[in-house]
């Protein structure tokens, strides 16, 4: 195995990152149990994204032909 300068093994997840991810995951699981959950009644209501980028522009006839190479 090849050691990195910081003592970790090349290709392995650095231990600090791993611990931080573990703590975050445990916190997320705990939070999921602690917070009230509301089951959404479908259909959900529409929401137009406010942070859309690039900005929405109306569909033109040219756009109609852009998807020719998509599957399905």
């Amino acid at each position: 195995m090849k050691r990195r300068d910081d003592g970790g093994v090349a290709g392995a997840i650095p231990r600090r990152t791993f611990l931080a991810a573990l703590v975050t995951a445990i916190a997320a699981v705990l939070a999921a149990f602690a917070l009230p959950v509301r089951r959404a009644v479908l259909p959900a209501s529409p929401a137009v994204l406010t942070v859309s980028k690039p900005p929405l522009r109306p569909l033109t006839r040219n756009d109609l032909y852009r998807a020719h190479d998509l599957a399905g």
């Binding site: 209501s45 529409p46 994204l49 569909l59 998509l70």
Partner: peptide, 23 residues
């Protein structure tokens, strides 16, 4: 796609298309 806004589930892509083609 489906987001929580103010404690309600919202469909964020409603009424918008990323592809449209006559096939």
């Amino acid at each position: 796609v489906r987001i929580n806004i103010d404690g309600r589930l919202r469909a964020s892509t409603y009424g918008t298309v990323v592809a449209a083609h006559v096939d």
